[in-house]
Design a protein around this nucleic acid. Structure first.
Lengths: 190, 190
DNA sequence: TGTACATCAGTGAACGCGCGTTCACTGATGTAC
DNA sequence: TGTACATCAGTGAACGCGCGTTCACTGATGTAC
């Protein structure tokens, strides 16, 4: 039985793997590549992760949970739905700018992992969906299918970030936060 | 030099490959799998495609071009921007329902291929973007960054389809078209 | 019509490669007496 | 303090596997005379 690995090593693996996965695609990054980037031998990776698949799944789960926690926190601000929606949107924009690589990774790998986390009530989509449903039930916003409104809000943010990724938009998300919030408000205006 | 392969065989390869790629992910589908599904031997695939990568790229290019052409057609309807926007949105919803597998494939593989087609002026995003820019310049819609408005419209549609994919929404896109159009109109209302 | 040849879709078997992963081993460090 | 041993992060070399792809070949079909 091996002792707990030093946290710094494990974190280094996570950081380098995330970076390379985004840069070159998951399939194009081998365990050897990751080991080399971290400065260890390939077998030693297995002291930290069961295997490559588990490393990928772990990165997704943790990254997705980060967004979920941040949004849940923002969703808890006092006031009406508008205030909560604004807080959530701004929070996502900030999170995006703080770790663009993580966002890209989530975007890139969502399909194939989303199904596994869909049931988790603390995933970011679920948190937003609950807030929208509550606001709809309370007649704070127009009676449109809450799932569709949730999709619309998520879509505006995610697609703006995607446009950034492909150079169609160059401003950071934080700089566009006012406009993005305004667009989301338009969706739910009375 | 081999003669032109029968179109039906090539189409069969495309159809089966697309289906399996979406079902299991591209990496998990081997050339042998595709050959077996079509009922031919693996080497014979190379009479139709240079290799697996080219097959994937070809499917993406053709699928993306299909959407581009449909949207360009819808963007040409007479009348103001509102009519054109509505036509485009409805057209995408219809296209989605007609070949859900194709849409899923484009969603799944966009990263890694989008960069290659970004320059093509007939890609669906570019067509919509031009329409939005023209409407903004003509003061038909509020003076918001046209790229961001384009992202918002695309995002609403794509994310609704993604919600469908993961079971968060069960209605077909065509059935939600009215609501989706209404949401898009809200984005550009004066 | 029969024969000889050209064409070409299609195949069985095999190739080389790089992958994820395993394993026996090393060598530095900590600990007991 | 010196000696013997336990612990454990870390490694070099190798394994087996399945992949994309190639190649020499087959056999059915069409064509010329």
């Amino acid at each position: 039985m091996r002792a707990m690995p030093a946290p710094s090593k494990k974190e280094a693996i996570r950081r380098e793997a995330l970076r390379m996965f985004v840069e070159r695609g998951i399939a194009a990054v081998s365990v050897r590549d990751i080991a080399q980037a971290v400065g260890m031998s390939p077998p030693n990776l297995y002291a930290h992760f069961t295997g490559k698949d588990e490393l990928v799944a772990d990165l997704f789960r943790e990254g997705y949970a980060t967004y979920g926690a941040a949004i849940a926190e923002a969703a808890a601000v006092p006031g009406g739905f508008a205030r909560r929606l604004e807080a959530m949107v701004r929070r996502i924009c900030r999170l995006h700018d703080e770790d663009e690589t993580l966002f890209q990774f989530l975007l890139l790998t969502q399909h194939g992992h989303l199904a596994a986390v869909a049931a988790d009530g603390n995933n970011p989509i679920e948190v937003l969906h609950r807030a929208v449903k509550a606001a709809t039930a309370a007649r704070e916003i127009p009676p449109v299918d809450p799932a569709l409104v949730t999709a619309a809000v998520v879509g505006i943010i995610v697609q703006a970030a995607t446009f950034r990724l492909y150079g169609r938009i160059s401003r950071p998300m934080g700089e566009m936060a006012d406009e993005i919030v305004a667009l989301c408000f338009r969706l739910v205006a009375p």
